[in-house]
Simulated assay, not measured.
Amino acid sequence: MSVRILALVGSLRAGSTNRQLAEAAVQVAPEGADVTVFEGLAEIPFYNEDIDVEGSVPAAAAKLRETAQAADAFLLFSPEYNGTIPAVLKNAIDWLSRPYGSSGFGGKPVAVIGTAFGQYGGVWAQDEARKAVGIAGGKVIEDIKLSIPSSVTRFAETHPSDDAEVVAQLTEVVARLHGNVGAAA
């Protein structure tokens, strides 16, 4: 049986380098691992307990929860917006943290990586994402990190999957996350 790793991308931009990084993760997944990029974060309304009512949860949020329940691990891709986590990624974490006691993360391994324009590659945002997802019930693998700086210039004419250094680092990240699935129990 293949380990299912659900990728959540914190950028909605069509040309997002984090989206491209997630696409590269799909390509480098080791045998026995299946990385799937979740489609539809833009359609999920901001979390609001008034609309999180059993039987009438918005369809996009219900799809996220269902997909997360079927996942064995999570790989979050976070750019950095104004020094912190993008709202779309935080919103996904909020929806998956509920209902209380039934987190979609459910103690499953989570790694947070990404790329950003700045010189540190989005480390502040990634740290914030680790904090939020850990509180939301995920088992954050703290030593799996990849922050790629200068995304705008580094990937201006090269897709991350064509950058040998990035491919090697990403391959290690996905393999290590895959290896943590059994260790999460």
Rank of each mutant, 00 (worst) to 15 (best):
R4W: 05
I5Q: 04
L6E: 12
S11K: 01
S11H: 07
L12V: 02
R19D: 10
R19G: 14
A22T: 09
A25E: 08
A25K: 12
V26P: 10
A29I: 00
P30R: 03
E31Y: 10
E31I: 00
G32D: 13
G32N: 00
V35G: 10
V35R: 12
T36M: 10
T36W: 05
T36Y: 09
T36P: 08
V37R: 08
F38C: 04
E39L: 10
A42Q: 13
E43K: 10
E43W: 07
I44R: 00
D50T: 11
D50A: 14
D50H: 07
V53A: 02
V57N: 05
P58F: 01
A59F: 08
A59L: 08
A61S: 01
A61W: 04
K63P: 05
K63H: 13
L64D: 01
L64Q: 00
E66G: 14
E66W: 02
T67K: 14
A68S: 05
Q69V: 15
Q69L: 15
L75Y: 03
S78Y: 00
P79H: 06
P79V: 09
E80P: 07
N82P: 03
N82S: 13
T84N: 13
P86R: 02
V88F: 03
L89P: 01
K90P: 05
N91Y: 11
I93C: 02
L96R: 12
Y100H: 12
Y100Q: 13
S102C: 11
S102F: 13
S103Y: 01
G104D: 00
G104P: 05
G106V: 04
K108P: 02
K108Q: 06
P109K: 02
V112P: 00
I113M: 03
G114T: 06
G114Y: 03
T115R: 03
A116M: 04
G118Y: 01
G118N: 15
G122I: 01
G122V: 10
G122C: 04
G122E: 07
V123A: 14
A125E: 08
A125D: 04
Q126M: 08
D127Q: 14
A129R: 09
R130K: 15
A132Y: 10
A132P: 07
I135S: 09
I135Y: 13
A136V: 09
G137N: 01
G138T: 05
K139E: 15
V140F: 00
V140L: 05
I141W: 12
K145S: 05
L146Y: 06
P149I: 14
S151Q: 03
T153I: 15
T153M: 15
T153K: 14
A156T: 00
A156G: 07
E157M: 12
H159I: 10
H159E: 14
P160M: 08
D162V: 06
A164N: 11
V166R: 03
Q169I: 05
Q169V: 09
Q169W: 06
Q169C: 11
E172P: 00
V173Q: 05
V174R: 08
R176V: 13
G179T: 09
N180H: 15
G182C: 09
G182Q: 10
A185H: 14
